[in-house]
């Protein structure tokens, strides 16, 4: 990595860290139980929302009721998105006359957006009407992110309350997440993106003449759409000159802002953030990349503020950075090193004034290698899933890093809210392991960690791992799963492993290379996404309820300090060891074997 690469990485981390405290403190105010200047300022709108929705602000919930409200609310949203896709041909704001989406793709997309995964088996501009994009996916981008924040705040209350039966109100937390956090930030970012050239309109797609007409060879088809064959059984082809191009438009900026801030990641266009109308300039790229980690990072500070010790929040953030920054640098190094086979062919892969150097396959020349690898690692560390480069085209080791970041459980920043509660599950496991080492009952933030919390935390940590490996195993054994693979051998296995890791950790990014818009993949990935989201949230809410009911234990000489560098290393180690132990065999069959075969084939 040269000085320019380090400068870009450093600038990103510095700006991100500079925003953590102000935004984190702001969110702590938004979720405070006590009236404050923020809730007074927005109180009128908040009360109006409660009145029209029939919400009683002071009516708190136990963890069971909170969980049920969360589940029912999200399943209703899921059904609404399913219905919108199936009926979009009859609904307004469909200037391209998009037909109904197929049932299996509607199922997959509805679950995907309700679970904050935003895996996309379809191409947005060729499948969905403006109404479906806005009312279906755009709304779910807000609500799924707000759900994650609500669950994490309820968990924090579990730590702060003593001998309490309730952990807050799901409806109040949802309202405040949306009203005070997601809406204002999204509005500001959407306007900034429009200033950079991101489209935001309702006009039909525009056909424009190409600057340079291009000629293609296409198969001749009969009236029924079947390929015409000659007397020898060969397909008949003809030359066709393309002179125009259809430019897709639509209300993109408003959706892209929340897609990044809410760690949703579902692209308005099929090429996602590699599309010039989603991400036109290096500045829009920086803003969007910042938005990906902004709320998950700031929530760490919010957590510290709410538990009355900001050092606890900084500790979680430090553990996240301890894993992210080296992996970001390693991914950049792997891509800048390029393809070893090219060296033997005497192809110059070094960076110079005339070329980016390294492996530029699948990357935008507007962004180059560093912005592509930083995005790839940020989007997979967070459960965002948007891409500005094609991960399938990364070098095997460069592609391994985003995949492994997903497999670590989406706790290195993770999803909005879900990253914090996932990391707190690991913190519970870490203090338990530390307690075992010294033979004391583990404590975290003044609460004893007992068998029930450990059972729930273990489930939260292990469910996504199980879904990913079992799903991959089914797909590589089933003919329908194998039919979707575009590449044979280790690389094809990587494509399937990535898809199931992404769905089972609610990330949503695609490695690419597999044809996932089939009933097999749509159904199986949909099931993985659902179970990776709601049972985990319920497990964390159960921990919240259990902790809230406990008494505060005074700190003693035997209490493990959880705000020290030692705990940062312990926490990061637990995350890495669990991720490595679970996925190393699968990674050996995929990207590691792929890398070794690339190196050996070059000699």
């Amino acid at each position: 990595m040269n000085a320019n690469s380090w400068a870009q990485l450093g600038l990103y981390v510095v700006v991100l860290l500079a925003l953590v405290k102000p935004l984190g403190a702001y969110m702590a105010l938004a979720f405070s139980d006590q009236p404050n200047r923020l809730t007074k300022f927005g109180g009128g709108i908040e009360r109006f929302v409660y009145r029209i929705c029939g919400i009683h602000r002071d009516e708190e919930m136990g963890w069971q009721r909170y969980s049920l409200a969360m589940l029912v609310f999200n399943v209703v949203g899921l059904l609404a998105v399913y219905a919108l896709q199936r009926t979009q041909q009859w609904l307004p704001l469909n200037p391209q006359h998009m037909p109904a989406v197929t049932p299996d793709s509607s199922f997959n997309t509805a679950i995907s957006f309700a679970t904050n995964t935003n895996w996309q088996g379809y191409g947005g501009e060729s499948t969905l009407s403006y109404l479906t994009q806005m009312l279906g996916l755009g709304v779910q981008n807000f609500l799924s992110a707000a759900t994650g924040i609500a669950v994490s705040i309820a968990l924090v209350r579990g730590f702060t309350r003593h001998t309490a039966k309730t952990i807050g109100s799901f409806w109040v937390d949802m309202t405040r997440s949306t009203l005070y956090v997601l809406l204002p930030l999204s509005l500001g970012l959407a306007l900034a993106l429009v200033s950079q050239g991101v489209v935001q309109d309702f006009s039909p797609y525009k056909d424009v003449p190409l600057l340079q007409p291009t000629t293609i060879t296409e198969a001749v088809k009969d009236a029924a759409g079947n390929a015409v064959k000659d007397a020898h059984g060969k397909e008949v082809t003809r030359q066709k000159t393309i002179t125009t191009q259809s430019l897709p438009l639509g209300p993109a900026a408003s959706q892209i802002a929340i897609k990044q801030l809410g760690t949703n990641g579902g692209g308005y266009f099929n090429a996602n953030s590699a599309h010039p109308y989603e991400n036109p300039t290096p500045f829009s790229n920086f803003l969007e990349m910042l938005a990906i980690l902004l709320i998950p990072a700031a929530l760490c500070y919010t957590f510290g503020r709410m538990v009355g010790d900001t050092r606890q929040g900084w500790t979680l953030l430090a553990a996240m950075l301890l894993i992210l920054v080296p992996l970001m640098a390693a991914c950049t190094l792997a891509e800048q090193a390029g393809n070893p086979n090219f060296t033997h062919l005497r192809i110059d892969q070094s960076a110079s004034a005339l070329q980016a150097g390294g492996n530029m396959e699948g990357k935008e020349t507007r962004f180059g290698i560093v912005d592509s690898t930083m995005w790839a690692t940020a989007t997979t560390a967070a459960s965002n899933g948007s891409v500005n480069a094609m991960h399938d085209s990364f070098t095997p080791l460069g592609g391994l890093i985003p995949m492994w970041l997903i497999q670590l459980g989406e706790v290195i920043f993770g999803g909005v809210g879900s990253g914090l509660y996932g990391m707190l599950a690991f913190a519970v496991v870490a203090v338990f392991i530390a307690g075992l080492m010294v033979g004391r009952t583990p404590e975290y933030l003044g609460k004893k960690i007992e068998a029930y919390e450990m059972k729930m935390a273990s489930l939260v940590v292990l469910i996504p791992c199980a879904l990913a490996v079992v799903g991959t195993a089914i797909a590589v054994m089933a003919p329908a799963g194998l039919a979707g693979m575009a590449n044979p051998g280790a690389h094809g296995f990587s494509e399937v492993l990535y898809a199931f890791s992404s769905a089972s950790n609610n990330n949503g990014s695609a490695f690419g290379g597999i044809s996932a818009n089939t009933s097999f993949y749509n159904s199986l990935l949909g099931i993985c996404m659902f179970f990776a989201r709601f049972p985990l949230a319920i497990g964390m809410l159960a921990i919240a309820g259990s902790l809230a009911a406990k008494k505060q234990v005074p700190e003693s000489a035997g209490t493990l300090p959880t705000h020290t560098p030692l705990f940062v290393v312990l926490l990061a180690t637990v995350v890495i060891v669990i991720g490595a132990l679970t996925f190393l065999p699968a990674l050996a069959l995929g990207p590691i074997a792929d890398s070794l075969s690339t190196v050996s084939s070059g000699h």
Binding site: L71, V75, Y82, D104, A110, E450, A451, F530, I538, A542
Partner: peptide
């Protein structure tokens, strides 16, 4: 096919409610 996928959504939701019930049972037992 709509019926199949709607039934699958219902089954997933019910399974999750079952998981919630199990978590509650374990909590009551401690």
């Amino acid at each position: 096919m709509d019926v199949v996928y709607l039934a699958l959504i219902a089954a997933l939701a019910l399974a999750t409610v079952g998981f919630l019930w199990l978590c509650e049972r374990v909590a009551d037992r401690k």
